[in-house]
Design a protein around this nucleic acid. Sequence first.
DNA 1: CTTCCACGGGAACACTGGGGTG
DNA 2: CACCCCAGTGTTCCCGTGGAAG
Length: 406
Amino acid sequence: MDNLFDNLIKVSGIFANKEVLRPTYIPEKLPHRERQIKNLADTLAAALKGETPSNIVIYGKTGTGKTATVKYVSNELEEMGRKLDSKCFMIYINSEVFDTQYRVFAYLARIFNKNVPLIGWPTDMVYSEFKAGIDIDNRCVIVVLDEVDRLATKSDGALYNLSRINSELNNARVSIIGISNDLTFTDLLDQRVKSSLGEEEIIFPPYDAEQLQDILGERAGKAFNYSTLDDGVIPLCAALAAQEHGDARRALDLLRVSGEIAERTKSRTVIEKHVRQASERLEANSIVEVIKTLPMQSKIVLSCVLLLRKERNKRRFSSGEVYNMYRRSCNHLSMEPLTQRRVTDLIAELDVLGLVSAVIVSKGRYGRTKEISLSVPEDYVQPILFEDYKLKALVSNIKVKAQMTL
DNA sequence: CTTCCACGGGAACACTGGGGTG
DNA sequence: CACCCCAGTGTTCCCGTGGAAG
């Protein structure tokens, strides 16, 4: 009679519907985004009247509701399109996933029932396939390019070709919505693309703590059972997330994880302590995640910073020191070392990821270096790195050697 | 003002994994 | 089947440059 899962599937005392707190959930109400929604709708309404909407660029940091807003408006638009029997398509493309012009056009062509292989063809062929696929009918296709800066940096023709495609179409019309979290990304674009893409601009400012509270309150009502949330919980989540440039996703994650912690500790309500634990855990998790997915060479470089800390008892190291250690390490692992040039790039990548911080220092007569230091707690990094048996061998080897030379 | 060292941009190259063609 | 074409990625090679100590 007793089943292993009996206790585990029991209706939660805390959550009514946890899905509401997931970043993929699109709420019916988007507090404090009324203006942006209206702007977007005003521009896109042209699509329903058989005209071509202006291209739009949307700016805003992560977790400011850009994607949710666009998807919301997109749903509304398509629904209205069905009522009016005017053919309107919104196609959402995450440019992090489809990050080259080949991939973007191949994806688009596939949506319009063209058989295009994932790689192999010349790009202009893929482009014509897409064009042919789209042009068989009188319709308006709105292509949403999320994280569009990814496509801009690669001096890649995707944006250029997309923005001038209308002049080559007889029936269909295409307009573009670019979503970017980098205000300066248009600088990288060709002048013509820049002016065509940026016909309309919509800015999503970060939420302040108060607005975050509204958002959390809105969702918490659906997500949690009545009176399971302590009074201080929502304000605290909002405050913590407001520090992280008003990231609503972060705030929702915090709230969700807090709830999960409360649930697991069999607490009947969520209290502020749970939020603080959640905050800590989220940070640790993200670091772990980043390190795990690092390529081998980057892991080695990171380990080298760790090893140097142990060996030298210092915090910051010149790139020369790191590179020497790196060569030694490769020796131990019998791997071909990369060039110094490449390693500086790897270090720069680690810097962007926030795992190390690297500052350029000029030492006058003695040239220029980058001073590299670990910017996350050592205890977080080490266990994950040494999960890799090779790297583990590395540390013991070098330790032994260091002792011998003492 | 010189001098020194690594930074970091850019070109070139190698390699991969897929195409089409004869 | 052998062969070449193509996009994409990671790497090396080359080199101009920054900027404070000397």
